[in-house]
Design a protein around this nucleic acid. Structure first.
Lengths: 352, 352
DNA sequence: TTGTAGGCGTTATCAA
DNA sequence: TTGATAACGCCTACAA
């Protein structure tokens, strides 16, 4: 008799998804140990027992409890993915690839969206860590809370796209500086001299690097920027920035955008101002969602190796987990992997 | 000296994220029970003890183990979201809203992508169920495996967008028939008589309903379809279908698409054929991603109440969970909630 | 107000 | 080849 043999009390939430290894054992009149071993395909169990166990398991719809398994100290099959925004095509692609890679390793994706809010980032991270995940892939906010950094020290972490100095762990990034530099050079080579840049905040590593690429390219020709607008990496900000710079006199002849979301906002602003690209202004986007090809003659853009970085991030994470498992502590230096973007020429830029 | 001061034996995978309630208790020279109660804010614990516990907890970075908590019979904070494709703007929006709603209830999103593959759907579902989630939100594949249906009977489930008869549980859907009917009528009212429809397979509930709407509208005017192409709901299929129907003689003057991905593919095909919309053919899309506004004069489309269905899905799920918790078994009839789409007129359709 | 003693479902160790 | 038993971290009925 268990603790639930009191009369009035209702059964404690059972009747749910509560088939255990012991239920299977009872049905077969064997010990639960044997069932466990049979399911683990232990060589110590006869083939006949194994197949009888498997039959009953299938018939009863038994599924092992991940929680109980974890309690015994086995590694979790969960990997946390923390990103700013899942509607952003770039991160959606990342999520897809990470999910695919994990699935092929029988692991699962715990998704958290931060909206670039450091407090939410911390809350989501705490919640994820309560599940004791195998690892974490994170696109950190601009200024993570100190506790966020502290918590991440105790779990295998890979930083994606953005890198924050206070965070340990490997990083997989894009050569943003080179990307924007190529975009800027392209417009300079086409005869433009009044160029504007709309990018993310300088508190973001990506914001700094992309701005740096723009400035590097201008410096090569001894030119000054016509306009630089930095802010939140959302369409709203680019709408505002582009609207105001295009309404001023001596407006730029070319605009370089620092993200896909900013590109969307910039095009929306031009559309609202009844300005056409490349007639009224040349535009170079960042990242290459499928629709760039369709927007009025196609958007010239910096194509990012999204597949590469996402695949690499999971590969790095999983291999570090393996190392950690075999060689005790992970002594391998975290290190950073960087991928090169490439410029795709379409109809949104023209020679002056 | 921690628990890892044994000499020869290596610590059993500890050194990881292994701070337990007992470690906190030891640091304070009190029993782990007191710590547990302090964290649960039990009235039986003195305020002084509580604050001392909280201080040490914060300082040591203790986080409760979700597994251990689950083992004690408490409900999981995980909700599984099973969708065909996270790169699809429609499902990305769904994921964002579900993630937000869950976060505000201190719950987490376990994301699975099926790629519309029933076997993968089953594998992912099994993996999710091993975590004993609180519930599941699913956009089922066209033909789920019988085991998938069987497994879903033991967990609170909400079907989203697509409805499959063999699946129990509530459903939150869009009035697809009305949506496509409105799109078709719009073209008919503009003088079109040769209309084509490109949609998803009829094995999908959405495929059947959307096709039905097209046929209903034509039947009202006593017209026949110029072309109907049904297939996989991917851009590739629409590229193929539109390319072939526009290359035939007596081609349609208007095309109605049965999904956003199909719309993308259709536009790509027209672009490749050097055909312009609405000059060479009128186009009505489905769903309204931000870029529809920017694609060559804007795409006339059927706007779907994505926010509504996603919010409702989580609301329904969470409220059913509450009912289940209070009133023993959930006896409330599952039921279906349906939302109405609306037509957005832009530049991709013209009067004939 | 605090402490002791189980037990949740698994797996690993030891014994038969 | 199989079985009994203990332990993982947490929560709670019961005892102090």
């Amino acid at each position: 008799m268990g603790p639930n043999d009191t009369q009035g009390a209702r059964p404690p939430l059972r009747g749910d998804a509560g088939i255990t290894i012991r239920d299977v054992a009872k049905a077969l009149n064997i010990s639960h140990t044997t069932v466990s071993r049979a399911l683990a395909d232990s060589p110590k169990i006869s083939d006949e027992t194994k197949s009888r166990v498997r039959a009953v398991v299938a018939q009863m719809g038994y599924l092992p409890s991940a929680s109980a398994r974890m309690m015994r100290g086995r590694r979790s099959s969960l990997v946390g993915l923390i990103i700013p925004d899942i509607q952003n095509d770039f991160y959606a692609t990342v999520a897809k690839i990470v999910a695919d890679s994990l699935a092929s390793h029988s692991m699962q994706l715990l998704l958290s969206v931060t909206d670039d809010n450091p407090d939410r980032e911390l809350r989501e991270l705490r919640a994820i860590l309560e599940t004791r995940p195998a690892g974490i892939v994170i696109v950190p906010t601009a200024l993570p809370r100190p506790e966020t950094c502290a918590l991440l020290q105790n779990v295998e972490t890979v930083q994606l796209v953005r890198v924050h100095a206070d965070l340990a762990g490997s990083a997989v990034v894009i050569d943003d500086r080179a990307g924007i530099k190529a975009a800027t050079r392209h417009l300079l080579d086409s005869g433009h001299t009044r160029l504007a840049f709309v990018g993310g905040d300088e508190t973001l590593s990506t914001g700094r690097e992309r701005l740096g690429g723009f400035q590097d390219a201008l410096a090569e020709r001894g030119l000054k920027a016509a306009n630089i607008s930095l802010g939140s990496p959302r369409p709203e900000f680019a709408r505002y920035a582009v609207t105001s710079m295009m309404s001023a006199r001596n407006r730029p002849t070319g605009i370089i955008l620092g993200s896909a979301e900013l590109t969307l906002g910039a095009l929306q602003a031009l559309r609202a101002l009844k300005l056409d690209w490349p007639r009224d202004v040349s535009v170079v986007g960042y990242h290459d969602p499928a629709w760039f090809e369709l927007a009025e003659g196609g958007i010239t853009t910096v194509r990012l190796p999204v597949e590469d970085i996402a695949t690499t991030a999971t590969t790095v994470l999983l291999s570090r987990l393996d190392e950690r498992q075999t060689s005790g502590a992970s002594e391998v230096s975290p290190g950073t992997v960087q991928f090169e973007p490439s410029l795709v020429l379409r109809g949104s830029t023209r020679r002056l």
